[in-house]
Design a protein around this nucleic acid. Sequence first.
DNA 1: TACCAGGAGACGC
DNA 2: GCGTCTCATGGT
Length: 283
Amino acid sequence: MEKLSFNQDFFNVKDTLSCGQVFRFYPYKSGYKIISADRCAYVYNDGGYAVIECEKQDEEYFSEYFDLTRDYAKIYSAAKDFGGVLSCSAEAGKGIRILRQNKTETLFSFMISQNNNIPRIKNTIEKLCAALGEAKEFCGETFYGFPSVSAMANADLEFYKSIGLGYRAEYVLSLAKKIDAGYNVEALSDLETPLLKRELLSIYGVGEKVCDCVLFFGFGKTDSFPVDTWLEKVYKEDFCGEIKDRKKISSYFTGLFKENSGFFQQYLFHYKRNIQNKSTKNG
DNA sequence: TACCAGGAGACGC
DNA sequence: GCGTCTCATGGT
C-alpha cells in the first residue's frame, strides 16, 4: 500500500467528494473509500495533510485523478476577487478539487443523475456495479469495478428497471449498446469543445445539463457551467437573475467566469446545497 | 413554445 | 403518513 501526502490547504476530502461531481464514495475509518473505474483508494485529511492510500500500481492513476498538478490557489483567488456570494462560496469550499474522472463512467453516471437525488443516484450506481462489475479487493473488503460496456450492453431493460433507474433505464441501455457497437467515447477528447458538445448532445438521454457535467468532470472542459436546481437558485437569489431558461443561465455564467466556470460552479453548488441551505434551516 | 410522462427514494412537515 | 423535490430529457 502506497501513502501519498499533500498540504490540505486546497485539498479537503469531504468537500471534494460531496460537491456533486462523483457518486462512488463511502465513509471509511476517518475518511472515505473512493472507487473509480476498477480501482479503489482510501482518502482522508489528517494533521494538515490530505492523504491518499492506494495500491502501488494505482499511484499514478490517483495522482492524476485528484488533479494534483493544478494550481488551485489561483482559482481560489480569482473567485475571491469576484466578491459577493462567490467569494463566500470559495472560502467555504476552498478545499474542493475537480476530479479527472473516467469519461465513459462519467457519461453513464450523469445520465443516471438526471432529475434524481444524490442518495438515490449513489444507490443505483452501486447496484449496477455490484450486479455487472468485476469483484475486487481493497483493504480486505470487496468492491466492484464499474462494469464493462459489453456487460452493460448484454443486460436487458428489465434489469435496469429493477435496480431503480426508472425511465433512465432506456437511456443507459441505449448508450451501452451504442458504445459496445463501436462508438468510441474516449476518442472524442480530440474534439474542440463546441464540436464535442454537439456530439455528446446527439446521444439519446443526454441534454444540456448532463452534457455540461460530462464536458467538465469527464473531459476537463473548464469553460462549461452545469445548471441544475441548485445553480438556478443561486442565479435567482444571489445574482438577482430573471432568465428562466437553464441553457441561457449557463451561458450567462460562462460569459462571466470564462475558463474558471466549472470550478466556480462547484464552489457555488457546494455552498448552496451544503452550507447556506442548512444554516437557513437551523436559524 | 409549453407542457407532460417516466420514476422512486429522500426529505420536510 | 403525505406531499414535494430531486445535478432533465424526449416527445407531443
